[in-house]
Design a protein around this nucleic acid. Structure first.
Lengths: 117, 117
DNA sequence: CAGTATCCGACATGATACTG
DNA sequence: CAGTATCATGTCGGATACTG
């Protein structure tokens, strides 16, 4: 997804954060898990229109990035719980920064400056 | 790109911020313009591998979101300068939050907790 | 319950050629 | 210089059906 040149010249740490948002669903999942752990189908219902395939993919990718944790319980039928890691919880700071920014500039109308030349 | 239900139940303000990142290039463009205004081909060179088409699209979308400003100067040949708006500059806060977070958790290894059941 | 497997269309991105 | 136009391609995400 990212070329080497990008990783080198720009900060790799930014790329890490961008990976989190690879999917358009990542944020909604994080928003859900921020309040409480959830199970697969709970998330599915909470998110509304996501397919099992997409949800699985997002969860796997967030798990690999260590934003969330996946725990399997040997009940019958099996229970799987997703929850935030410390890293994930700390990401909420970014999450809220985005939210705050969006809120703040909701009705911004650009001011045109006079010509320079 | 976003369903109505999402816009309603979750904050629309978050969606606004997410639109900024619609393209994988948006962040690199913002990073470039954060330091100084640039012209089209300057950006192109700075970003490395972007096609004129993709760059145009990103710029138009950021312009529409009022993150950046596009100014045309009637030189020969024509000069076009892109620069950040106030809203755009304020977005850097999010940008840096992401960067800081990525840096902070760079080498995080998840801690496994004991089973619960 | 919590997925996997498969098919498919829409869209993002790139390469290339051309223009005022 | 700063794009537009066109074509090609790969990936994303949804729908559907099936499974331990």
């Amino acid at each position: 997804m990212y070329t080497d040149s990008q990783k080198e010249e720009c900060s790799a740490s930014l790329g890490e954060a961008m990976q989190v948002m690879g999917s358009k669903w990542s944020f909604w999942v994080i928003g859900e898990l921020a309040t409480a752990p959830r199970r697969f189908n709970e998330l599915r219902r909470g998110l509304g229109n996501i397919s099992t395939k997409s949800l699985t993919e997002v969860l796997r990718s967030l798990e690999q990035a260590r934003i969330i944790r996946r725990q399997v319980f040997a009940t019958v039928p099996v229970t799987v719980e997703y929850s935030m890691t410390d890293k994930g919880m700390d990401f909420l700071q970014v999450y809220y920064a985005m939210q705050g920014w969006g809120e703040k500039w909701k009705d911004y109308d650009i001011q045109v400056q006079g010509d320079k030349i």
